[in-house]
Simulated scan of single mutants.
Amino acid sequence: MTKIGYARVSTSDQDCRLQEEALRQAGCDVIRSEKRSGTSTKGREELDTVLSFLRPGDILVVTKIDRLARSLADLLKIVEGLQATGAALQAIDQPVDTSSAAGKAFLQMLGVFAEFETNLRRERQMEGISAAKARGVYRGRPPKIDAEEIRRLKDEGVGASDIAKRLKIARASVYRVLGDAPATTKAGETA
Rank of each mutant, 00 (worst) to 15 (best):
T184N: 10
E123Q: 14
E148I: 09
I169E: 03
R17G: 11
D66S: 14
V112F: 11
I59E: 15
G159M: 05
A160K: 01
K35C: 11
S71D: 08
G136Y: 03
A22L: 11
G157I: 08
I150M: 00
R32Y: 08
E156I: 02
D15G: 03
D97L: 03
E127K: 12
S12D: 15
Y175C: 00
I65D: 02
R67N: 04
A191D: 13
R176P: 02
A22F: 00
T2F: 10
D93I: 04
I129P: 06
F113W: 11
L72S: 12
A26V: 06
L18T: 14
V61A: 04
G81D: 10
G157P: 03
I78Q: 03
R124W: 09
P182V: 06
A160L: 01
L18D: 13
M1G: 13
D15W: 00
Q19T: 12
S37N: 07
G188S: 10
D155F: 09
S12M: 13
M1W: 11
T63P: 00
A131Y: 09
D155G: 13
D97E: 03
G103Y: 05
S173R: 05
R141Y: 05
S100F: 09
D58F: 00
V112M: 12
K104E: 12
S52C: 09
T98D: 01
D155W: 07
R135K: 15
Y175Q: 00
G5H: 04
L107Q: 11
R36W: 11
R70A: 06
K168G: 08
T184P: 02
R36P: 00
S10K: 06
I145V: 15
G27L: 01
K165F: 01
A132K: 03
L47Q: 05
T2A: 13
V96Q: 08
R55L: 05
M126C: 08
I59A: 14
G128I: 01
I78L: 07
A164C: 10
V79I: 15
C28N: 06
Y6I: 02
A105H: 05
T41K: 04
A26C: 07
Q94V: 05
T98L: 02
L60P: 02
F53I: 10
L89R: 05
T49A: 15
M1I: 12
V9W: 10
L110W: 00
A105S: 11
A102Q: 14
S130C: 04
S52Q: 13
A84T: 12
E21P: 01
K3H: 13
E34T: 06
Q94R: 05
A73P: 00
A105Q: 10
T85L: 09
K165G: 03
D155I: 03
S100L: 08
I150S: 00
A102E: 13
L51G: 02
L89F: 04
K154C: 04
R152S: 15
G57D: 13
A170N: 15
E80R: 14
L23Q: 06
E115R: 01
A26E: 10
A172G: 14
Q83P: 00
A7M: 02
M126S: 13
R70F: 05
I4D: 00
P95N: 10
L68T: 06
S99N: 12
T118G: 13
Q83G: 14
Q94T: 07
R139T: 14
E156W: 11
C28I: 08
L75M: 15
